[in-house]
Amino acid sequence: MQLVTPGIGLIFWMLVSFSLVLYVLGKYAWKPIMKGIHQREDSIEKALEAANDAKKEMLQLKAGNEQLLRDAKDERDALMRDARKVKEAILDEARVKANEEAGRIMENARENIQYEKMAAINDLKNQIASISIEIAEKLIGKELENKKQQHELTEKLLKDVKIN
């Protein structure tokens, strides 16, 4: 029955030692340990939260960057489109202008030609008139001399005319 009879000595020493160990560990071990664990858990939780926030921010930043890139691309495309339009417009304008210029030059040339032509015709008319008069003068002069000679002279004069 020694097994199931608690001894007074052991009870006494156990009461003393356990109370002591409870007090000592409670004050010098469990308090700092629990505090330390709690603090660390808090700091880990905060760090995790911060990391999560940073991740979210990163995602947002990335999305922003992408948006920026897309915008830039769009702008570039728009610019290119505009440039192309401007180029085409310039080209068209140039073409129109060139055509106009060419037209004008042609017109001028035509006018000049007409003018020159008119001048030449006038000149020719004048010459023909003078020649005709000369011929007529000569014809009138010769007619009186000889019929045959008259013919010959006319022939000869006509040859002169052809030269012109």
Binding site: G7, I8, G9, L10, F12, W13, M14, S17, F18, L20, V21, V24, L25, Y28, A29, W30, K31, P32, I33, K35, G36, I37
Partner: peptide, 29 residues
Amino acid sequence: DFSITKNVLSLFISVLLLCIIFISIGNKY
């Protein structure tokens, strides 16, 4: 009988061990 018996000595040893182990750990924290 308040003798330091085998169990009492063992009790003291274990209490000492507990104090040494956990106070040293507490200091680390």
